[in-house]
Design a protein around this nucleic acid. Structure first.
Lengths: 135, 135
DNA sequence: TTTAAAGTAACAACAATTGTTACAATAAGA
DNA sequence: TCTTATTGTAACAATTGTTGTTACTTTAAA
């Protein structure tokens, strides 16, 4: 993850958790994170797809958590925004004539899968409420 | 990690482990991975800094493992090539006037550190010999 | 009907990754 | 000592990924 998407997403979620009854607008959220409101709306789109938040359009619109923060787990946020494996990308065309080139991507997949699973399992044990408690 | 550096590094290490007594050249390694020899030499430079391999310049030069593959652990390769945190980058200037903006990066650091440690601990339990056994 | 918000497309700017060429430094071996 | 093959690395090009911005449509409250 050579990007700020998890940081942005968990920042949004933390703000939403802080005032769970209010519809917070992208301008307000953007001002706390100090990024462009369009970026915020894009990230909110992802969080919506994952059913982590609900939004309302039009005047007085905004975004809220889709449930109590103690029922939301950090792995849900992570898997929603992640776009790479922890160990990175595989090389595209390792040489099939080489005994190692032929197998490497399969073996890397095994390792990648275990590694990713490990992190998800860890983040699943942490709720958004746990995270926000420290603020 | 939105790059192929771990994949390239472990591919190199696997090839070296396969013929531990030979000096393998960057052309040979590049041909198995199917990337440019310069990329291979660059990655070997990193592996050298981490004392994972030794190289010899000049005619009949090349690279070898710096020790038996059962004494090399995958976390050593991972930490040598990693250049990002698993949870990604932090936003640079969260708003210090906001109670959450003010704290977010500190709290993210806590989480990031635990997550990275988890993966390193996992990879430390796997030797290069374990990995290469399956080829 | 007015107003303020989300949603999103299009594009621009910037950063990271990967590929390539070229050449200096080095070391083996004739 | 000379030839040859290799690493090391700088410089740059090409590609891809990330972030920022503008502008406009859609939506819903009041």
């Amino acid at each position: 993850m050579n990007n700020t998407r998890f940081a942005t997403a968990i920042h949004i979620m933390t703000l939403l958790a802080d005032t769970p009854d209010e519809w917070l607008g992208s301008d307000f959220l953007a001002d706390s994170i100090n990024i462009n409101p369009v970026m915020v709306r894009r990230e909110i789109g992802i969080l919506q797809n994952a059913s982590l938040v609900i939004t309302r359009r039009g005047k007085d619109g905004g975004t809220k958590l889709n449930g109590p923060s103690k029922t939301i787990h950090l792995d849900e946020i992570y898997t929603a925004v992640r776009n790479n494996d922890i160990l990175g990308k595989k090389n595209k065309n390792p040489n099939p004539k080489c005994k190692i080139g032929k197998q490497i991507n399969k073996q890397l997949d095994r390792l990648t899968e275990k590694t990713d699973q490990l992190v998800e399992d860890f983040l699943r044990e942490i709720t958004l409420a746990d995270f926000t408690k420290r603020f």
